[in-house]
Design a protein around this nucleic acid. Structure first.
Length: 559
RNA sequence: UGGGGGAUCGUCUAACGGUAGGACAGCUGACUCUGGAUCAGUAGGUCGGGGUUCGAAUCCCUGUCCCCCAGCCA
């Protein structure tokens, strides 16, 4: 608490509430996902806000599953969501809660409202109910069932619970005002009859509470002080407050809304996400190109980077389009400090070093991570035949090209200075097929004895020691900056056809032989990569998390 | 159209009547055994129009644009 608190408007409100003595038992918040889908970056921000506010004020944050709709929810999602929250690094105040834990209390409260004449059983069909609601500009009309006696309503509500009526035939509605300009106040539905088995309560219920009826009361039951949610619930706040008042609830939670964000070149709406998965545009909910937490995890994004990204976004009531570069930056910032380095050649070109005897192996020591001396050293084998990346050689180099070309020198990272002596090309295509070169024997470790400056340093691998690996390169899933704004019909056309490039046979240094799924590395001069769970007996599979910044290719692109 | 919200560098975000600042992205340069990292520098903004004030991003009036709401989803 000695650290300066964030200055966003939610922190200001909570500070005021605390000063006014409104939270005698401390600040309590909650993250309330519906277990009907996978968490994504948007949820990550909500999680950071919910947990962050609680932590900043020395309070608690709970994880509560808003499981009021058994037709769309299931235990698999519950497990996946809880795993994702913990993976991000947050520890919910035990135990994990469920709105379904409060079904009985909620029902008793509904009965109380019925008795007070504040709720009634309505027999309008879904269609008729819609017709009675009016429109944006016209008031609604009262339901013909609006003025039943409290006794009759109680009897009917109990019968609804008992399962005496068919699904959809009746609802319990709050009796508020069918002419209210806020549509949510036009006698909203509190209970609907659903003949569905619930993942926790089984077949115990045949009526299920609506979000509006359940949410605020669940907050109240749990002693939540600040119920943080996104902007689209703003109009619901009047109803949230109406229920608390109608029930005479004393310790009132306060709903505060903040803005979601959009990520450029990405989609986060549940519907569009579902679409790209179901249309087979990606390989599943954990596809590394998706902004789902499962996808980001598989891609190799460290959770700390995701949290740092979210925290850097700020909390406001303004809609925003966050550039993907922001996420990339957070990932690089984290990985630069923590990822062990490795040499990997994605597009190999063989070089025979004529002044190194066949069969001889020389070993070089180099840092695991120059940014982290504590990470120690690693050993690299060097021999007569090596691979370098094709991009590091040019027959006719442009100005300022610091890499290898006929007759020039370059440093092989941590090993020797190499000169290119001879180039073999395919006579029919002109393509370079093999290089011959020689090393400066007085440059062992990479430092020439005469102190001459070598501008370029490239990565390499001893051909005899290199490990084959599959490498998957990812680009944004969408070419359009704002695919969320495209029509569903055009969504497929907005997909980037080159979002995935698979390199079947790349080479990595032998130290990676035992790398386990999830481990992250920086392939020097190339980017950050993580071991994919597809790795196995057939070999290693790497996902590119994000490339390194590359001012050379930018310069080339500029011309 | 009724109601509820929102407009500050390209992007995100500060400034709460007193010098419009930071971050990301961009550009320059320095340094470098990663053309990475790091460091230094640079460019770039208050939605429009009125008004109040010594002074307005901030207060008032007015206009414009954008988002959300007509599920027995959350």
């Amino acid at each position: 608490m000695s650290e300066p608190l964030s200055t966003d408007f939610i922190h200001e409100i909570v500070t005021e509430d605390l000063a006014a003595g409104k939270c005698p038992d401390g600040v309590v918040t909650r993250f309330p996902p519906e277990p009907n889908g996978y968490l994504h970056l948007g949820h990550a921000k909500a999680i950071c806000v919910d947990f962050g506010v609680a932590t900043d004020f020395g309070g608690r944050c709970r994880l509560r599953f808003d499981d009021t709709n058994p037709t769309r929810e299931n235990q698999d999602y519950v497990d996946a969501i809880e795993r994702d929250v913990r993976w991000l690094g947050f520890e919910p105040d035990a135990p994990v809660r469920f709105t379904s834990d409060y079904f009985e209390q909620l029902f008793q409260w509904a009965l109380a409202l019925v008795d007070r004449g504040r709720a009634y059983v309505c027999e309008l069909s879904a269609e008729d109910l819609r017709l009675h609601r009016g429109s944006l500009s016209e008031p609604g009309r009262d339901s013909p069932w609006r003025d039943r006696s409290a006794d009759e309503n109680r009897r009917l509500l109990l019968a609804m619970r008992a399962g005496d009526f068919p699904e959809g035939s009746r609802t319990l509605r709050a009796k508020i005002d069918m002419a209210a300009p806020n549509l949510h106040l036009r006698d909203p539905v509190m209970y609907r009859i659903l003949r569905a088995s619930h993942h926790r309560t089984g077949d115990a219920w045949s009526v299920y509470p609506s979000y509006d009826w359940a949410h605020g009361q669940s907050d109240a039951i749990e002693g939540v002080t600040h119920s943080l949610c996104t902007l689209e619930f703003e109009d619901h706040r009047a109803l949230y407050d109406w229920f608390l008042t109608a029930l005479d609830i004393e310790r009132r939670p306060r709903q505060i809304e903040f803005a979601r964000f959009n990520l450029s070149h990405s989609v986060m709406s549940k519907r569009k996400l579902k679409r790209v998965v179901e249309e087979g545009l990606v390989r599943g909910w954990d596809d590394p190109r998706l902004p789902t937490l499962a996808g980001l995890r598989r891609r190799g994004c460290p959770p700390e980077a995701i949290v740092s990204f979210c925290e850097g976004l700020g909390v406001t009531r303004r809609e925003s389009m966050v550039e993907l570069a922001r996420l990339d930056h957070a990932v690089r910032e984290r990985l630069n400090l923590t990822a062990p380095r490795a040499l990997a050649v994605l597009d190999p070109l063989k070089v025979v070093i004529d002044n190194v005897p066949e069969g001889e192996v020389r070993w070089f020591e180099t840092a695991v991570n120059p940014e982290d001396p504590a990470a120690g050293m690693r050993r690299l084998p060097f021999s007569r035949e090596i691979y370098i990346d094709r991009a590091d050689f040019m027959l006719e180099p442009p100005p300022k090209y610091h890499r290898l070309s006929p007759g020039t020198e370059v440093r092989l990272r941590s090993a020797y200075i190499l000169r290119c002596d001879h180039v073999e090309t395919d006579p029919s295509t002109g393509a370079v097929t093999l290089l011959h070169g020689s090393i400066d024997p007085d440059s062992s470790g990479g430092q020439p004895a005469d102190g001459r400056k070598i501008k370029g340093t490239i990565h390499w691998l001893s051909a005899a020691h290199a490990l084959p690996a599959e490498v998957r390169l990812y680009e944004p899933l969408f070419t359009a900056a704002d695919p969320e704004a495209t029509d569903d019909a055009d969504l497929l056309a907005a997909v980037n056809p080159e979002s995935l490039t698979v390199i079947e046979r790349a080479w990595v240094e032998p130290n990676l032989a035992d790398a386990a799924p999830g481990e992250r590395f920086q392939f020097e001069r190339v980017g950050y990569f993580a071991v994919d769970p597809d790795s196995g007996a057939d070999g290693l599979v790497f996902n590119r998390i994000v490339g390194l910044r590359d001012s050379w290719s930018k310069a080339v692109a500029r011309g």
